[in-house]
Design a protein around this nucleic acid. Structure first.
Length: 508
RNA sequence: GCGCCAGUAGCUCAAUUGGCAGAGCAACUGACUCUUAAUCAGUAGGUUCGGGGUUCGAUUCCCUGCUGGCGCACCA
């Protein structure tokens, strides 16, 4: 005899009882006439009407002898069910004894309002649609107040399905994420951009300054990299004449993880022939406006204690000017030693091989970026850290035509007038090679295949990359990237030496 | 990778100076035909994260490992 105080054993025993009674605990389908929310919304026309058929997960159960109340929940919401023995019959009512919280049920019955005023379904037929064998955490609710909520962060990330079934705000966050991406796609489509897909597995990675993941192709006996950006293949499409292309895809960077970083994340990149980085700023402003309207219903967004205003136009400030205002330093004129000293003053010890460009970026990150709460385009970066950007029309020796959009102290977008001079591109790659030789593991590798494409001629073009996860964080007020990723990267769970399946509540 | 903090029943959390490991919810049994954190009576449930040490005695003190959270560093 199974120990019935063990919830797992108790549920398996009920499952066996159902099967013994000839009930299929996992029937193939159930046809619904209404969603839960519809029953509530259309109560006036449904009341005491024929029958509605609703299905969902059982979220609460209150048996009271010959009467039982409960709530079933579907994607639209939850509705109360009311079962009576005299209505269901002896046999039908006994089925309730084999039901647990978390089971999927289908009910048929009439809609009415209880004495306490809650719109409910008087159950005339009850069907088990899927027996649940593990107890889910129980969240109770009264007068809108929720008790014993499921808040353990680790469990929420590792078992997102529990988070989704128990926390409505989690469901809302991911709906907002989906709406954000849909809105971006709609806007680009409307502007004549073509959505494309480019390879994730690459022989030479590129398009950003970052360390890659490595993988291996067995049949070809070939080591490959997972892409760190979408950039280079997309620009080959510009060479090919597609003129306006974009990709929303996963990129992979082999770096540490924290509140703002996951090893794989979603990047939107678009490339726009015959436009420059200033045109791109206009379009990015419009994209943020469209997305904020769609997802937040307005252009004012709460961000911690601040209100962020996404009404265009955004501030456009040169990086060097911002650094000068914050530190008094004319960094563009200074040598590496002076820059390193400034870093030290800002409490960052930089590696001895760090280039001037990296040092300037660091100074910016420490002294300027955190204060950029309202949307700000930071423009005109040092050439050394921007190997794919076109030299600046006003200062071609030292600067490039580039912007990064900062909102809430975070970088949301990175863009430039694309470098389309193949000879200069080769020299920039070679310069990166020198940085790499000096120990910079993030320096951009030389890509002959890309250079060949450029030699065929690429029209002037603007290119933009937007960190979709961070955009969603901004729009949803999430403070960690994990809160906007359905399945954030987690260390594997191990028990002792042997790798084990993820632990689950109720596991012996 | 470094620093700080945490890990006790399925869940949320207690446990005095180092002295019998507890409560609520969930589970199980019973009562209850308009309840809603249903209520009432009862039952069961523990490798106190793993390993080692100190001690007559360790949830508690020490060492070590694992996992997580937060911060720093790197990156977007």
């Amino acid at each position: 005899m199974a120990d019935l105080t063990d919830p797992l054993a108790a549920r398996r025993e009920k499952l066996a009882r159902l099967r013994a009674a000839g009930v299929d605990p996992y029937p193939p389908r159930f046809s619904r006439s209404h969603q839960a929310a519809e029953v509530l919304e259309r109560f006036a026309e449904l009341e005491e009407d024929a029958s509605v058929r609703v299905a969902g997960r059982l979220q609460s159960l209150r048996p009271m002898g010959k009467t039982t109340f409960g709530h079933i929940e579907d994607a639209s919401g939850r509705v109360q069910i009311y079962a009576r023995r005299d209505q269901l019959g002896e046999k039908g009512y006994r089925l309730l004894k084999t039901i647990d919280l978390g089971d999927f049920l289908g009910v048929r019955g009439s809609v009415f309002r209880t004495r306490m005023g809650e719109i409910s379904i008087r159950v005339e037929e009850l069907v088990i649609l899927a027996k649940s064998l593990r107890p889910m955490p129980v969240v109770k609710e009264r007068d809108g107040e929720r008790y014993d909520t499921f808040q353990d962060r680790e469990a929420r990330y590792r078992q997102r399905y529990l988070d989704l079934m128990l926390n409505p705000e989690t469901r809302e966050t991911f709906r907002q994420r989906s709406r954000t991406i849909a809105a971006l796609r709609r806007l680009l489509d409307a502007r004549g951009f073509l959505e494309v897909e480019t390879p994730v597995l690459q022989l030479v990675y590129g398009g950003a300054l970052a360390r890659p993941f490595r993988t291996h192709h067995n049949a070809l006996g070939l080591d490959l990299y997972l892409r760190i950006a979408e950039e280079l293949p997309l620009k080959k499409l510009i060479v090919g004449g597609l003129e306006r292309v974009y990709e929303i895809g996963r990129v992979f960077r082999n770096e540490g993880l924290d509140r703002h970083h996951n090893p794989e994340f979603t990047m939107l990149e678009f490339y726009w022939a015959y436009a420059d980085y200033r045109d791109a700023m206009d379009l990015v402003e419009e994209m943020l406006r469209a997305v904020a309207r769609e997802v937040c219903g307005g252009l004012e967004i709460a961000w911690g204690e601040h209100q962020i205003d996404l009404e265009p136009p955004f501030a456009r400030r040169s990086m060097m000017e911002l650094i000068r205002e914050a530190t008094g330093e004319q960094v563009l004129e200074q040598d590496a030693e002076t820059l390193r000293a400034t870093c030290r003053r800002l409490e960052a010890e930089m590696p001895p091989d760090a280039s001037r460009g990296k040092l300037i970026e660091k100074i910016f990150d420490l002294a300027v970026a955190p204060a950029l709460v309202q949307p700000t385009f930071v423009t005109d970066h040092p050439k050394l850290v921007s190997p794919l950007a076109k030299s600046h029309r006003d200062d071609p020796e030292r600067l490039v035509e580039r912007f990064e959009l900062f909102v809430g102290g975070q970088e949301l977008a990175n863009a430039f007038s694309e470098l389309n001079d193949p000879e200069e591109q080769r020299r920039r790659f070679e310069q990166q090679g020198a940085l790499r030789a000096a120990g910079d593991e993030e320096a951009h590798p030389l890509d002959e295949d890309y250079l060949m494409a450029l030699e065929h001629g690429m029209p002037p073009a603007a290119g933009v990359g937007i960190g979709v996860d961070r955009l969603v964080m901004l729009l949803t007020g999430a403070e960690a990237i994990r809160d906007v990723l359905l399945f954030p990267h987690m260390r594997p769970r191990t028990r002792g030496a042997a790798p084990a399946a993820p632990t689950d509540r109720g596991e012996a």
